[in-house]
């Protein structure tokens, strides 16, 4: 780890102020950033610790919307989100207890790891990402792997999820990391069905629009029998080929439908 200056702002506005400094980076749960620093793969001059900010903590649920402050840990989401069980179940299955007690929803979404779970939930459930500057619909938020529309110094403060009629997340573990080798988050709002896929694409999280259309008119697993996911553009690594990942997307989507 290289030397850096650690700032512990008292409140959100101080944090945003600190983040405007050159070479400043936000430190939330640190589940990605700390290992990166320890391996000397990043060298921020200033780390702005936002994990302890009360303004970034908590879950509220009203009128079919679950609002989660960005600094809320996976463990808290798993334990306290009642009106959106699929989301709580997703959070409960991230990492292990130590990770869930540190890792935050804002950190996960801002990082946009191609194998992370939250981006799929965010994209499937019509979420709005609220930042220190603006509100961004999830459909506009994710740009590519480890890339989002966030500007330098812009901080996620809250994520609002529209609670669907039914939803289910199917995660197929990468054997070593237990990140999603492929994860499919399915959410149904009447005839509007969203299928968001993580872990599979070289471009990061995406929506499988053919399946969404098919399921919109016939919400049954057999509705996508004739569909195939194009393996082109899928990730290929030591844990699975492009074809394997493409196949898993379909298998997991059908399982998600059956589980709803």
């Amino acid at each position: 780890m290289y030397d850096f200056e650690l700032r512990r702002p008292e409140n959100l506005s101080e944090a945003i102020e600190s983040l405007s400094a050159d070479g400043a980076q936000a430190l939330a749960g640190g589940q990605t950033l700390i290992p990166t620093l320890k391996n000397r793969l990043a060298s921020p001059d200033v780390l702005v610790s936002i994990g302890g900010l009360a303004e970034l903590q908590g879950v509220s649920e009203s009128n079919g919307v679950v609002s989660i402050k960005a600094g809320t840990t996976h463990g808290v989401v798993a334990g306290s989100v009642k009106s959106y069980p699929a989301l709580a179940a997703l959070a409960a299955n991230i990492g292990d207890p130590a990770v869930r007690n540190r890792g935050t929803i804002g950190g996960s979404i801002a990082n946009n790891d191609p194998s992370a779970c939250y981006p799929a939930a965010t994209l499937a459930s019509k979420a709005t990402i609220i930042t220190s500057k603006r509100s961004i619909p999830s459909s506009d938020f994710f740009v590519g792997i480890f890339e989002t529309v966030l500007d330098e110094g812009e901080l996620i403060t809250q994520v609002d999820f529209e609670v669907p009629d039914v939803a289910n997340y199917q995660k197929f573990d990468q054997p070593a990391s237990r990140f999603a080798l492929v994860g499919v988050f399915l959410a149904r709002y009447g005839n509007d069905v969203r299928v968001a896929v993580t872990g599979a694409s070289e471009d990061g999280v995406f929506r499988w629009s053919e399946a969404e259309q098919a399921l919109g008119s016939d919400f049954s697993a057999s509705a996508i029998d004739r569909l195939e996911v194009d393996a082109e553009g899928m990730i290929e690594d030591i844990h699975g080929s492009k074809d394997y990942r493409a196949s898993l997307i379909k298998v997991l989507t059908k399982r998600a439908v059956k589980a709803c």
């Binding site: 054997p175 070593a176 990391s177 990140f179 690594d237 030591i238 844990h239």
Partner: peptide, 11 residues
């Protein structure tokens, strides 16, 4: 070594 960390080496 592509499986040089626990992210890729499955214990």
């Amino acid at each position: 070594l592509l499986s040089g960390t626990y992210m890729d080496y499955s214990m």
